[in-house]
Structure formats: C-alpha cells, structure tokens
C-alpha cells in the first residue's frame, strides 16, 4: 500500500482541530522571551547614550542637549542588546511586533522627562547609611 502512506496523516488532519489559529480573532502565540519591539520609559532615562553606542544597526539616537531619544523602527533588528546594556533599566522589550507601516518612516521620537534628583545633603546620607 505504498500509494497511501499519506492517508493516515490526511485522515487525522480532517477529523482533528485545525493546526492554525484564527489569527485576528485569537492573538498570536507569544512567550515571555519573545522580542517584539523596544519601549522606553522616558521618565527614567538618564541620556547616557550606551544604547546608541551598542546598537549594531545604529537605529537609536540619543541627543543629550535636546533631551531626545529616537528610534528608527525600520532599522531596529530587535536584538535586545540596548536593553542588556541600559544602566538604569529604562528600556524593556514589548512582546508585540511593531505595526506595519504605510509610508517609509519608522522614526519615533521620545522626549526624555527625567529630572536629576537633588543631591541629598551630606548629613542625610550619613544618617541613611547608618540606618
């Protein structure tokens, strides 16, 4: 019966549930580690520029004077290296992919709102250290 080797699999797929998801109705599979797109928390960014230096595709641009953090979504290869290198952990990976674009511009600009905290007075730090 070498002609009907496929029959077993074919019959099984007919009676079993479909292997695919009804996509827009049910969301796609995502795992905790999935790399979707990079998100920034502008209130915590200290504009150190480490993410810009370590970006292999030069998608990130940090302008310290203008307090701007900019990413080109079309250049970004979602490699996770900016997130690993960020000293204040203000970057994180979102599970959803960035949406498809209709025009050629993936630039997204964020205004950094981080305010450097006032340096506490020396006497206070001393007390904190004791506590």
């Amino acid at each position: 019966m070498a002609f009907f080797e496929m029959a077993k699999t074919a019959i099984r797929t007919v009676v079993s549930r479909p292997a695919t998801l009804m996509y827009p109705a049910r969301p796609g599979k995502k795992t905790g580690l999935s790399r979707g797109h990079v998100v920034i928390d502008p209130s915590r960014c200290i504009s150190c520029g480490m993410c810009m230096k370590k970006c292999p595709s030069e998608a990130i641009c940090v302008e310290k004077d203008e307090r701007i953090w900019r990413i080109d979504r079309l250049r970004c290869v979602v490699c996770n290296s900016c997130i690993e290198v960020c000293p204040v952990k203000c970057l994180r990976m979102d599970l959803q992919y960035s949406p498809a674009l209709l025009s050629h511009s993936g630039l997204e600009t964020f205004l950094i709102t981080y305010v450097k905290p006032e340096r506490p007075k020396k006497s206070e730090t001393g007390e904190n250290a004791d506590a």
């Binding site: 599979k29 795992t31 790399r35 996770n80």
Partner: peptide
C-alpha cells in the same frame, strides 16, 4: 520554532 522562541526569544533569528 515554538521551542526556539520559548527558549531564545526569536523564532528565526535566535540571537
């Protein structure tokens, strides 16, 4: 591919 995504974060480019 599901296993690769669960363990590395990427389906095709594992990184």
């Amino acid at each position: 591919l599901d296993i690769l995504e669960e363990t590395t974060g990427g389906r095709v480019i594992q990184g």
